[in-house]
Design a protein around this nucleic acid. Structure first.
Lengths: 239, 239, 239, 239
DNA sequence: GATGAATGAGGGTTCATTCAT
DNA sequence: TATGAATGAACCCTCATTCAT
């Protein structure tokens, strides 16, 4: 099994005594925590860390300021919780696309599509903007996001390429670099266009398929083996 | 001569009457404007928009607060002027690398190096973070930055590829897409690593040369013509 | 028997019906009251009124916030109850020193020592600071503290001096003033030094004995009768 | 010349350039500084450090919150400035009473009166309460107040006693202790009564004269020499 | 009766903007 | 015209008090 990043979501509430009496321990009501996170996410993603005020969050989440501070020690901690969550939502289940079976080309296209569509969709672009904007002042935040998100994914995908090499389908000197090349080819031009708000709409499925297919072509033309061509030729013949 | 993006710098000084009296109209002394922009740039790039205070800028620029507000209506407007300028500094002269002569491979490597080193150097990454962070709230800012910077460069490079096609050295169906592919291959993995502060140091020349060479290889393997191979073979022989 | 100030501790529990059901009326369980007072005292004395938070008290006392508000209407009322109690602890048993027997000089020294050591010990100084600091805003608090503490003691000591006059050992026109003089001589300089935190350590027994002895000397030189001198001379001879 | 403590009042305003143009440097307008200090003093003295809010001070001083922070870095710093000033106002010129001439007894009474009336007057008691209340949490504040105020005065007075010893008018083993004794005798009972708000009115001149006279009597009876008695007898005869 | 999670006014402090000089 | 002292709204955070459980 290749995929799925991090579980997180703190187990919370052990609240022994309080729970018996139907009352939750302070800072341990998951519904309230959710409410705060949801409100805060909207505000942080929309406004960025600095421009977001705790009053905005208070209003958006529908809880009082004091309550937020029961669940999160500071604005910064709340923000980091949001980012962690977003990262999880973005990258979990993303690498399942590598496992579905089918030919190498099919798998690469399936994976490239999933990855690129995810990374460039509106919500995710906004989250990334927020993290990148905050990375100037809180570099750790960005670093952690990258390590647990893109970097982890990169390692999984590098492993996938290695397997394909073991099967004799690919031949490359530097699989990690190849993995980066593949990823970036799949979003050729699109990532920056989205990030800088040049595009107001995320790429369509169709457009994405065109770019990904071109990227896979290029990738396989570079790293595919004779064995791969024979396999593909045989398949094409049977269709 | 292929390159160089936009000069702008608002026409400034109409100062009719004031000038006659040996005095400039309010907000029209270009030296003062320069002084403000230089001070503000340092502060904005170092601290980001929100963390930068007008007092910081005042101190760094050596002009009074009131004066800044004569030249720029608000902190935000000043910020946008800085970004415009930064964009100019980043992308101007960048595309000169396409003109220096030499073989196609040499030119592509020279250009890929220039571009990637520029885009991932510390100052530029910080500027981009700042723009990206602000793009959520001021999408126009990011859009303008992208259009006049990366997009314009993309068009110049697409033109270059077209020329190479005309010379019979390259063969591609979609030169604009190819241009994006090339650009992103040259920074494979690195751009995001820098943006998210996973890397605290920009890539070294050496590392960059390795990545760019791999990117050019892949690019030419995909799009190079027989004529290109012959040319390269002949050159290799004469060395 | 001369001494011991005030018993207080409000009569509490009338708890008619509740008591019958084996349950106390709200705010009437003396053990709980004790628990709250003990916790609150530690917090108030350590931190002062303003810096002490009800959460601190809650934690220290081991009772819930709501419960505290059942026993005390407000933070301020709780504070006043603490002060009352502290006063009792400081001044009760203090005047027993006047009764132990021995010569007049011995008794005065014993009493002077007890009084001065008590008034200048760390805990008591802190309590007094707290009361004095609050006296600006709640003058009644200070007044009550003074009346039931120092003033009451002053009256007891004045009575003692009167007895000594009756025995012909002392001769003074204004015993109440003399009582004040004695008290202040016994702490000459020390009280203010402690109050203003010029001293971080309370005076040692040794130092205090030196000051008290000097004070008693001065006092008796002023107010002692011929009869006293004869008595002391005789005693000195028999030793 | 015996007396006068500390000059303080920062020299302020050198404001070179600004002054030329009739504008003061930030935080250097003495009138504004005065206004802030006056407003803050009223609030701090009335409410104590903790209970005083910067909003109260803003209102009382009639300046905006931002302005206060130009002149004083924090609430605490403002408070300390107030206390320093109060100390100066209390103790400056107090020890001039030791110089006026006249017999030793007259001088002691004059000094004792000046000191006691000052220390027990309403304004000064309130200031002392504030300092004492704050001493719990900021011991340095109280210590500094004591050292530069009462302690400095104590040293001056000890010097005076020394001179009287040199003249053969007094005889004492421990002049510093004697100085404390004198000081405390002059306020016998009164200091604590005022501090704890048992007295709502400061002692009258008449009452103070009675207490001081009694204190001086006692003091001289203890420490006066035969020479002093002869001198006083001669003076009494000539009257 | 006891609990402690929730409230929201108010704490000290900062800072973009204005305007008298 | 250029200045920078003054403003006051808004910042993040705390905490006395309440009330549903």
């Amino acid at each position: 099994m290749i995929s799925d990043l991090s579980p997180e979501i703190p187990g919370d509430q052990q609240n022994t005594e309080a729970a018996r009496r139907g009352r939750r321990a302070a800072g341990c009501d998951p519904a309230k925590r959710r409410q705060i996170l949801d409100g805060a996410r909207r505000v942080f993603i929309d406004l960025g860390f600095d421009a977001a005020s705790m009053n905005d969050i208070t209003r958006e989440a529908g809880v009082s300021k004091g309550t937020i501070y029961v669940y999160f020690a500071s604005k910064e901690e709340l923000f980091e919780a949001i980012i962690e969550e977003e990262r999880g939502k973005i990258f979990n289940n993303l690498y399942g696309a590598l496992e579905g079976g089918g030919s190498l080309r099919e798998t690469l296209i399936r994976f490239g599509m999933a990855l690129s569509l995810k990374i460039t969709c509106d919500k995710v672009i906004r989250a990334q903007r927020t993290v990148i904007g905050a990375s100037e002042r809180v570099p750790d935040l960005g670093r952690r996001f990258y390590e647990r998100g893109p970097l982890h994914g990169h390692m999984l995908f590098t492993g996938f390429l290695q397997s394909a090499m073991d099967e004799g389908l690919l031949d490359m000197k530097d699989p990690p670099l190849a993995a980066y090349q593949f990823t970036d080819l799949c979003m050729a031009g699109l990532f920056r266009q989205c990030l800088f708000a040049y595009r107001t709409e995320p790429p369509s499925d169709e457009e994405m398929r065109y770019v990904v297919a071109a990227g896979v072509d290029m990738f396989l033309k570079s790293y595919g083996t004779v064995k791969l061509w024979e396999l593909e030729a045989r398949e094409a013949a049977t269709e």
